[in-house]
């Protein structure tokens, strides 16, 4: 696993436009209901007293997540068939010839990355655009982002360049799977576990 590939997201510039999600869907010809990259909106707020008035103090920000090709992928650990496996370059992929479509990985992954394709009868997920990469191109989502919020590469390089933040709401405690993910947090980003807001678009992820 020389490369240990992963993703970077700049939350502070992500506008929630979902161009990455659509580029991914288009590139991989995904059917309705299968979304390898998802953009989640996290919203919350409180009231603040300002003199005699109560003023709203609200926040809302977006997090674009595909698969984090985790260091300790729980999807791989629970898979009964070993169809879900880690590859040489550190990416996590499904072997369709082994998968029984039990969907156990879908229950386990706290990022909703493995997605079941009922037409194929097996699990599918982000492979970090293995074919594009082999041609020296960037993954479709990274290329499509108008805000240039996404990047990808060996996780050590991403961490050297962008830092080590990966624990912001609504993402889970990173100690569970140790995601290959670096985030530049939004100015209102809430730390993981604070539960100060909620996911505003649960049906879209």
């Amino acid at each position: 696993m020389s490369d240990n590939l992963g993703f970077y997201l700049d939350q502070s510039v992500c506008t929630g436009c979902k161009a990455c999600q659509i580029a991914c869907k288009d590139k991989h010809d995904l059917p309705v209901g299968v979304t390898w990259r998802r953009v989640v909106e996290y919203t919350g707020g409180t009231w603040q007293q300002d003199g005699d008035t109560m003023v709203p103090n609200v926040f809302s920000y977006y997090t674009s997540i595909a698969c984090n090709h985790c260091e300790d992928p729980i999807c791989v650990a629970v898979c009964p068939t070993t169809a879900m496996h880690k590859r040489e370059d550190g990416t996590v992929a499904v072997d369709p010839d082994k998968c029984v479509g039990c969907r156990y990985c879908e229950w386990a992954c706290p990022y909703s990355a493995p997605q079941y394709n009922p037409e194929l009868g097996h699990m599918t997920k982000c492979d970090l655009c293995a074919d594009y990469r082999s041609e020296g191109k960037n993954p479709a989502c990274v290329e499509a982002c108008p805000s240039r919020a996404l990047d990808w590469g060996p996780i050590d390089e991403l961490r050297a360049k962008y830092g080590t933040v990966d624990a912001v709401e609504p993402l889970p405690d990173p100690s569970i799977t140790r995601p290959h993910l670096v985030i530049t947090p939004h100015r209102d980003a809430q730390p993981t576990g604070s539960g100060t807001g909620e996911i505003a678009n649960p049906t879209e992820i």
Partner: peptide, 19 residues
């Protein structure tokens, strides 16, 4: 199961998968 024909593969991960 989505693909019962692969059911024999389900023994492959005894050391890690409760399933």
């Amino acid at each position: 199961l989505g693909n019962p024909f692969n059911a024999l593969n389900t023994f492959r991960h005894l050391d890690s998968s409760w399933l």
